[in-house]
Design a protein around this nucleic acid. Sequence first.
DNA 1: GCAAGTTTCTAATTTTTTTTATTAACTCAA
DNA 2: TTGAGTTAATAAAAAAAATTAGAAACTTGC
Lengths: 403, 403
Amino acid sequence: MEIFLKDIEDVNNENRQYAQKRKIVGLLNKSEKPLTIPGICKKVKLSVPTGTKLINELIDDKVIVESGKKETNNGRRPSLYKVDSNFAYCIGVVVLLKGISFSVYNLDMHEVFKFQDDDFVLENTPGCLDRVVAFIQKAISTSGINPGRVLGMGMGITGRVNSKTGYSHNYFNFLEESLIDFFSAKFSFPVYVDNDTHVLGLAEQYFGKAKDIKNAFVLNLSRGMGLAIIANGELIVGENGFSGEFGHIQFAESDRLCLCGKRGCLGTEVSGYALEQNFQQQVEAGETSLLLTSRESCQIKYVDILKAAANGDSLSISLTHNLGFKLGKALGNMINLLNPGVIIIGGEFVSAKDILIDSIKSGMTHTGLQLPLRSCELIFSSIGADAASKGAAAIVLRSLQLI
Amino acid sequence: MEIFLKDIEDVNNENRQYAQKRKIVGLLNKSEKPLTIPGICKKVKLSVPTGTKLINELIDDKVIVESGKKETNNGRRPSLYKVDSNFAYCIGVVVLLKGISFSVYNLDMHEVFKFQDDDFVLENTPGCLDRVVAFIQKAISTSGINPGRVLGMGMGITGRVNSKTGYSHNYFNFLEESLIDFFSAKFSFPVYVDNDTHVLGLAEQYFGKAKDIKNAFVLNLSRGMGLAIIANGELIVGENGFSGEFGHIQFAESDRLCLCGKRGCLGTEVSGYALEQNFQQQVEAGETSLLLTSRESCQIKYVDILKAAANGDSLSISLTHNLGFKLGKALGNMINLLNPGVIIIGGEFVSAKDILIDSIKSGMTHTGLQLPLRSCELIFSSIGADAASKGAAAIVLRSLQLI
DNA sequence: GCAAGTTTCTAATTTTTTTTATTAACTCAA
DNA sequence: TTGAGTTAATAAAAAAAATTAGAAACTTGC
């Protein structure tokens, strides 16, 4: 653990060795396959004898382990080495409007423990903050993991959060101190925070479909909407971590009033909330739907509409299609601006991907320029429900360059 | 020169020392003030004796020079060192629709030579490409600089250029090879290319008002319009270098036909070209202007309108104001998306800054969210006419980490 | 004006690292 | 099966770097 936790500010030999060891561990952890000593030494620019020495020390410390010999077609077969993925852990916590989750991952990013409370409701009150702390403490104790083996905890929180300072502007904004300081004082390991959209972007960047792509968009489309932008291989959070307010771009054709106070925000037309509104409006205007047989229109949630669309409900299909087309037009503009290699649609709307894909694409061709459009792929996330959680934990590994 | 030009792929002691020397030179060149040996050693994580040795070798090679002693209030006064800014040079070439320029800068980014041809007209023909090559060759020979002292040449070219591969899509696209390969074969030093807007962004990032800001927009507003985006301290060029097509975002209220074939592009309302069109339209509709006393409306250029606006011409002011307001609205949206710390307006429109600043700002408040808006400053470029040229040369220094 | 405290710088010593040489492990073809 | 070719791993020698120690250059307080 010393390797990861020791500061390397001072210029001296011990610290230099810690830095080199960290580089070796990072390289091994990033690599899909185990590596050989000569391979490692070449990458970290170290001679074979010194590399061997450091690797042997890391084996003594149980950070890395041997894993067989490499098959080659000439020469002596080298031994292979990989990190012991259970040597240390990182924690991902996600706080949403409804529901809170806590997951522990090993260095391989395999989930080794999960704790969840779907009844949790986020409120901007000290009581709610206490509940969050209690929830995490409970989770840690029931998990049975050794806090000394935890490299850190990343938290993804709904709302506007300054990812650099850790100050939150929507929830828990009554705190004098930053969320990072607040939570750091409660736990023995480092704490990091960011908002839910950014955290979802990190998940796609490191474990999802944006893995080897340096410029990508990750759209978080559920009840609300946000856009994580990855450029030059890094998540762009902006000067204060407020980037990604794609839902508040004035781009809708209608001029519905948005929660932010402005009119014409894209989120008033493209979001789960908007889908519900549009559904109700159409029903009031006389349209009909299979969904109405079981419930009142005001009780129908956007996930129901998406499901109905997938099942062939005509009104739901047309509304979803419309939404996709508008989204596509907005995305086409963003393509002109940032020239991403891939756009990944994540969030609850993934369930309607068969309907959305073509409508988004046709919207994109309306606004996108040929050259950047041609090189931009549109795909849907396949990372699953715990993407945000993985992304939150990824903040920890990123800060240690283990990823 | 060996220090800069030698590849450091192989792991061996000589290369390691070259890398360390490069680090030292980069540190000294980036620093405003000369530095002491202990200061340098701390930064590059080297012991004082080895640092001293390397620095002395660099002095022997005439790369760095001593520059007096540092004033301190206790202890022995350390010697100060800085790079000899005339040790090496970099070249910036800018190819615009009308006009081509060639500048040589020393490591300080002081212009030591300039060569210009305002009669040059860019055409997508082999003949024009030949003229560009001849112009550069002529410039080099008249400059009298030793090509062996040139670290490289950066070129900024109008149109869509893949900044990574160097392939050009608008001009000289008849070439089988990339522009980088084409020009590299003609000269003995490395060549880099990018488009004019990106190059202007680099100039602001390194020498202008975005110098210490990690997230910035640099708007290139002249006859056309482009946006350079700096995020996480790096210029964002996108997957193929096509980023920044802000003028082709469908955001205008009108639906004028754009040169790109689409309707409603921002550039049809916010650009020098649009200003000319709007002026003519208003005159045809019966409006009058001071400008009409000297010329026909169809002969009036956007720079004339900007000048007239600055001189109080009512029609020009109102058109400029309108343009600024629309621009502001579009920028407000971009602020929501990317949360920049500063927006710098560059290009010919800087001459109308007094009129533009308030109109852009009021446009921004219409679309920008409070939090990101509050932390975003709007300023005008003051870097001057040769900004693009400096930016093009900056590509060279950036690639060597001298900046 | 001199001792005490600081910091730079260099010389001597020690440690660490790289180089070089050697041995080991393996393939393939004659 | 044997030896030529290749790569890995280790051991010994050489080089390079970091530590340590001490001298030099400077301030400040007494």
